[in-house]
Nucleic acid binder design. Sequence first.
DNA 1: TGTTCAATGTCGCAA
DNA 2: TTGCGACGTTGAACA
Lengths: 239, 239
Amino acid sequence: MRLVIATCSVDYTGRLSAHLPTATRLLMIKNDGSVLVHSDGGSYKPLNWMSPPCRFEVEPPQDEDRAAGVVQSWRVTHARTGDTLLVRIHEILHDSAHELGVDPGLVKDGVEADLQRMLAAQVERIGEGLALVRREYPTAIGPVDLLLREDRSDSAARGEQRHVAVEVKRRAGIDAVEQLTRYLHLLNRDPLLGAVRGVLAAQAFAPQARVLAVDRGIDCVVLDYDAMRGAPSGAPTLF
Amino acid sequence: MRLVIATCSVDYTGRLSAHLPTATRLLMIKNDGSVLVHSDGGSYKPLNWMSPPCRFEVEPPQDEDRAAGVVQSWRVTHARTGDTLLVRIHEILHDSAHELGVDPGLVKDGVEADLQRMLAAQVERIGEGLALVRREYPTAIGPVDLLLREDRSDSAARGEQRHVAVEVKRRAGIDAVEQLTRYLHLLNRDPLLGAVRGVLAAQAFAPQARVLAVDRGIDCVVLDYDAMRGAPSGAPTLF
DNA sequence: TGTTCAATGTCGCAA
DNA sequence: TTGCGACGTTGAACA
């Protein structure tokens, strides 16, 4: 990895055009030739960059650029798309190279799957008189998070099999409503299930997602992660 | 901005837990206290990071860490969420600080907003005999990019008000078809508009997006950004 | 401040 | 490869 602090201007041409006026920035050149242009602020996203695979070339400046004080130009070209990053360097303030070796990589431990697992053990949070049929109930377009069954003795006695399909999300947006709608279309065509009602369960709802869900007859259930975690888990609450 | 090349391990605790085993990496500390951990590969996204606003603290290593060869620990804590990044440093191979100043910022050209603006001035690219009603036509679930009206004298004379809803994308995927479909459902319930036809306009189409669009009676129009940019803009082409 | 949507999104997985 | 969903998404516009 090479680190250069330089006064430079940068132009990207590819899916869009982007220009960075002259200023002092960090130029990071990774050993696969990819380049990141960082300023001393903002977030983790660089101001400009070129992703691998790409070719890194140093060019002498054009006459016009030389007259403007450019001492060196870098042209970074993407191997497949041809996108280019052109860095015009006016002054190099620091330049160092470092051997880093291969990184062992990140180990993640998510909170994500927990929600679904815990909710499967606490289906009463969806509504009364419901029993879990199964998690990840398979359909032609992918598994539904939870499939529940209304467990009332009277309806069961009449042979009714009303079901509830539940989509679990940390944050429910419009896309979650769309996803559940697609499942419901499929499930309601299945004669074995009978009428299937939809429930969207999430820690938070985008307002417009709630509007769209209501418009489609889908119920929204707000999940309290802390309360769910505090509840005794693993014990199916059928009684 | 401070640049440190160090052998270190990193732990993030917040929305999720993540661990980076010991290896040599670049640690970038921006002057707002935010930290980026980069390896010599991957894309522009750091292996780990802490976004501002946050607090940067140097701690002497715990006894256990010291025994494991840790010479210094960094604790970076997010000001609002309390998320923490803990960097255990075994060896510092490089350490330098640089004054960068404020960055003038990026200028972009060719994003979706540009497409929509230009297309609004060149609605004939959607089809003949169309006039712009308005950009960002509001609906209950968000604004439609463009609403057009068929401007034929014969239909106008009969009081017909056939409209066209246009969704503009740089790249149209299935989600764009879904989005436009939602708008069409709503707009076709509006008695003031009459029948509303849908058009998806994009520089590129995902194959399955085109299939889905055709299946739903939505027309696809390919946009040539360069040609649109070259065309005289601002002059409404009503004649 | 909160909400919505685009992004040079990136990333990972599966068909 | 393409499609699809999630992301510690980030970022900007707008109410």
